[in-house]
Computed example of a mutant assay.
Amino acid sequence: MHIMEGFLPPAHALGWSAASLPFVIWGLRSLQRSVQAQPEQRMLLGVSAAFAFLLSALKLPSVTGSCSHPTGVGLGAMLFGPAAMVPIALVVLLFQALLLAHGGLTTLGANLFSMGIVGPLVSYAVFRLARGVGLGRSGAVFLAACLGDLATYLCTSVQLAWAFPDPVGGVAASLLKFGGIFALTQIPLAISEGLLTVLVVNAMARFNAAELQGLSLFARRGVQA
Rank of each mutant, 00 (worst) to 15 (best):
M1N: 13
M1I: 13
P9F: 10
A18V: 12
P22H: 09
F23Q: 04
W26L: 09
W26F: 09
G27R: 04
L28K: 13
L28D: 13
R29G: 14
R29Y: 14
S30W: 03
S34W: 10
Q38D: 15
Q38P: 12
P39M: 05
E40Y: 10
R42V: 11
M43Q: 15
M43I: 15
S48I: 08
S48Q: 08
A50S: 13
F53Q: 12
L55D: 00
L55V: 01
S56P: 02
P61C: 09
S62W: 03
S62P: 08
G65N: 05
H69S: 04
H69F: 04
V73P: 02
G74V: 08
L75H: 14
G76A: 07
G76W: 05
M78W: 11
A84T: 14
I88W: 02
V92D: 01
L94R: 01
L94H: 07
Q96W: 10
L98D: 08
L98H: 09
L98W: 10
L100E: 11
L100R: 10
A101C: 06
T106Q: 03
T106E: 02
N111R: 10
S114P: 00
G116S: 00
G116V: 06
L121I: 01
L121E: 04
V122F: 11
S123Y: 05
A125M: 11
R128F: 13
L129F: 15
A130T: 01
R131Y: 01
R137C: 09
G139P: 07
F142G: 02
L143F: 03
A151H: 02
T152F: 03
L154R: 05
L154C: 11
C155P: 00
T156A: 13
T156G: 12
L160S: 04
W162H: 03
D166C: 06
V168M: 04
V171I: 03
S174W: 07
F178S: 13
F178E: 12
I181A: 14
F182I: 13
L184C: 15
T185P: 02
T185S: 14
T185D: 09
E193V: 08
L195T: 07
L196S: 11
V198P: 04
V201K: 01
M204D: 06
A205W: 01
F207E: 05
N208Y: 02
A209F: 12
Q213H: 09
L215F: 04
R221M: 11
R221I: 09
G222Q: 09
V223Y: 06
